[in-house]
Amino acid sequence: MQSQHIMRSFDEELRFLANQIGGMGGYAERMVDEAVSALVTGDPALARKVIADDAFLDQKEREIGEKAVIIIAKRQPMARDLREIVGAIRISGDLERIGDLGKNIAKRVVAITETRQPVRLFRGLSSLSDLALTQLKEVLDAYASRSAEKLGLVRDRDEEIDAMYTSLFRELLTYMMEDPRNITACTHLIFCAKNIERIGDHATNVAETVYHIVTGTTMPPERPKEDQSHKVVAPVPTETSE
């Protein structure tokens, strides 16, 4: 975006796309934040607001898609311009999914808060969502400044999120075993945690897209999957520790 095109209107179209992405990003960040705080504070009104907000992201994604196709057809862009436009399509897709996941968390608020759960159950969840939100913010900041420098760290953070999710999964499993009355809420909470973990994955996708826009190459392929929760099994209760 530093260099100008001969057609000023082309620049403006590209900028329009980028700003729309910025708007979507802000909305997605806000939705996830509000969904989790609705969950932690047990606030169904806030949850309903989040659910309603999702329509905005869906609409924006369609708009960006259409706009991008028109630009490609009209301008026949190459190289960085093309990456910029295709990147916008991809990122808007990821952001829309993040919105969906946030909405899904919000939908579970009522079911979880019906039976009031102890605070400790929510602490892990809110620090997990803080991690995911930090990651999302860093990725979108990298998109704003078109810099690929810090994107490597994003991946590290994704590993952190995965490890934390696995740990949370274990903890929730323990609570369910302690008291079957916890099962409803804990199952919902596990889904919420999984959603947040998926948000981290989408943020990593965005990071890869930004890397591609900036450098023109794909990010180096090492991408370990740290989500170990498929290996976690409930410990067989042989000894009852008192």
């Binding site: 530093q2 700003n19 910025g22 708007g23 802000g26 806000r30 979108l140 900041d141 400044s145």
Partner: peptide, 15 residues
């Protein structure tokens, strides 16, 4: 650090 030319709307994304 903010590169000159970066749109404000990208840096401050809150609705």
């Amino acid at each position: 650090t903010v590169a000159p030319g970066m749109p404000l709307q990208l840096k401050f994304r809150a609705p």
